[in-house]
Structure formats: C-alpha cells, structure tokens
Simulated assay, not measured.
Amino acid sequence: MRILLTNDDGINAPGLYVLEKIAAKLSDDIWICAPAEEQSGAGHSLTLTRPVRLREHAPRRFSVSGTPTDAVNMALKKVLPEPPDLILSGVNRGANLGDDVTYSGTVSAAMEGALAGVRSIALSQVYGKEGVGNAVSFDAAEAWGEKVLRPLVDIEFASRSLVNINFPPMAGGDVRGIRVVRQGFHDYARGSVVESIDPRGFPYFWFGLHGIEHTPGSDTDLEAIADGYISVTPLHLDLTHGAELERMADQYQP
C-alpha cells in the first residue's frame, strides 16, 4: 500500500514525524510532500498568483513553497510515480473540531485527496492550556494512531468523502476509546482579535482562538473529545442543503 503523508504545519513539524511512525506500521511505501513552512488556517486555498517551488530533501521526502492543497496537487501530479492508495494529513498540532474543518489546512489537504479519488484521512492532536509552541504532547496520537487507522484502510470510502480524526489531550493510556460522531459547531462570534503596537509605533492585529465557545451536542466530535475519546468523523464535499434546495426552488415556480 502506497501512502502519501502531508500536513499544514510544515515539513519539519513534530506531528509529521509522529505521522511517519504511525504510517510505518501500515506500510513501507511512504512518500511525503508537505508545505515548506507552516500554513495553519490556509483552508482549501490554492496558490495561483506566484510560482510554487518543489524541493527534494531526501528520497520520497519533498516540500513545496505553498499551501497544503498545493502540496497534495504537486505530489499527485509531479512527485509520485503512481497515485497513492491512501493520503494521511497531520498529525496537526491542535484540534480540528466542529467548524474548524472549514479553516483547516490539515483537513483541506485530505479534501484535495478526496477530490482526486484517493482515500484520505486528516489527523489532529488536541492540546490543553499547557501546550505552548511546539511543547505539545502527541502521546495519544502515537499510542492510538495505528489502532484507529487499521479499520479505515480496509474499507472503501464514499465518493468525494474523507475522514477527520481528533485525539484527546491526554496520555495514551488515559484515552477511553474511539467514537464515530458527527461534526459539532463552535460559536466563532466569541473569538478574539488581539490588538497591539509594533516597535515602530503602528497598530497590528492578531486573530486569537481563545474565547471561542465550545458547545458540545449529543454525539458530536466536541463531546467525544471532552469525554476523553478519539473522534472519528466522516465528512463529504457536497455542501448542498437538500431541504433548502427544494424550498428555494419553490420560490421560483411560476
């Protein structure tokens, strides 16, 4: 089985090395193509206004000067000799729960794989207030990564679908299990914008993630993580709202 690894934290991110360890338990045919630098929050963006550079660091290990979507595209079209059987994106440093999936470069890399017809999975390690910089423990991901992936590599995914996995912020031995759950929702209206002054006296702004309200509902990824479980959420790329489609169509009837 050929596996492509990518992420949005960059080619040198600790989580990518964790993902390599996990993938090595599944296959010995592993390729890496990731952004050269951190691209957190890049979403499903594609670089169109400047050239994308491809760099080979070692056999089967590449980086691109662009987004996670660029990385997957370059891997599929210029790097791999044949399409992969599986794309793994992560392990992200931080949660990709609820609405996070719309911003996440990690999840968007898996989306790009799904669009190309490749079975794709995003993996993220949630961390608590003690997580500063790269001082984030990936213990839960390392301990449970193979266990949560094994059942998924043996099944077919629906067309244009992917799987989003999050590991709770705790030691691997404390994880209570795995739950297959729905996507939850955040209250992003409560997010913050941090304002300060740079050394030259000009104001600048930094979007903050603290202050966002987490409102777990029954059987959502937010609730699973809060309860100490790994969340596994199948997502699909058809964003059409079926009920609204019919209601709006009625408005245009003669």
Results as ranks from 00 to 15, higher is better:
Asn7Phe: 03
Ile11His: 01
Asn12Thr: 10
Tyr17Met: 13
Tyr17Pro: 01
Leu19Arg: 03
Glu20Phe: 00
Ala23Ser: 12
Ala24Lys: 12
Lys25His: 08
Ser27Val: 03
Asp29Cys: 06
Ile30Leu: 05
Ile32Val: 08
Ile32Tyr: 03
Ile32Gly: 04
Ala34Gly: 07
Glu38His: 15
Ser40Thr: 14
Ala42Tyr: 00
Leu48Asn: 04
Thr49Met: 13
Pro51Trp: 00
Glu56Cys: 11
Glu56Phe: 05
His57Arg: 04
Ala58Gly: 07
Arg60Cys: 00
Ser63Ala: 02
Ser65Tyr: 00
Ala71Glu: 01
Val72Cys: 05
Leu76Ile: 10
Leu80Cys: 15
Leu80Tyr: 05
Glu82Gly: 06
Asp85Pro: 02
Leu88Ala: 00
Ser89Tyr: 03
Ala95Lys: 08
Asn96His: 14
Asn96Gln: 15
Gly98Arg: 05
Thr102Arg: 12
Gly105Met: 08
Gly105Gln: 05
Ser108Met: 02
Ser108Trp: 01
Ala109His: 03
Ala109Leu: 02
Met111Gly: 06
Met111Phe: 13
Glu112Thr: 14
Glu112Lys: 07
Glu112Met: 08
Ala114Thr: 06
Leu115Asp: 06
Ser120Lys: 07
Leu123Met: 12
Leu123Thr: 02
Leu123Ala: 03
Ser124Glu: 04
Val126Asn: 01
Lys129Val: 10
Glu130Gly: 08
Gly131Asn: 02
Val132Pro: 01
Gly133Asp: 04
Val136Cys: 04
Asp139Val: 10
Ala141His: 00
Ala143Lys: 03
Glu146His: 08
Val148Glu: 06
Val148Ala: 04
Arg150Ile: 05
Arg150His: 05
Asp154Ser: 15
Glu156Thr: 15
Phe157Thr: 03
Leu162Ile: 05
Asn164Phe: 01
Asn164Gly: 07
Asn166Cys: 11
Asn166Ala: 14
Phe167Gly: 00
Gly172Glu: 06
Asp174Gly: 10
Gly177His: 09
Arg179Ile: 04
Val180Leu: 05
Gln183Pro: 08
Phe185Gly: 05
His186Asp: 08
Asp187Met: 14
Tyr188Arg: 10
Ala189Leu: 11
Ala189Ser: 11
Ser192Asp: 08
Val194Ala: 11
Val194Pro: 03
Ile197Gly: 06
Ile197Ala: 02
Pro199Ala: 12
Phe202Ile: 12
Pro203Ala: 12
Trp206Glu: 15
Gly211Trp: 07
Ile212Arg: 07
Ile212Ser: 04
His214Thr: 13
Thr215Cys: 09
Gly217Tyr: 11
Asp219Tyr: 06
Glu223Lys: 10
Asp227Gly: 09
Asp227Tyr: 12
Val232Glu: 03
Leu235Gly: 05
His236Gln: 14
His236Thr: 09
Glu244Phe: 13
Glu246Lys: 15
Met248Phe: 14
Asp250Arg: 12
Gln251Trp: 07
Gln251Gly: 01
Gln253Tyr: 13
Pro254Gly: 09
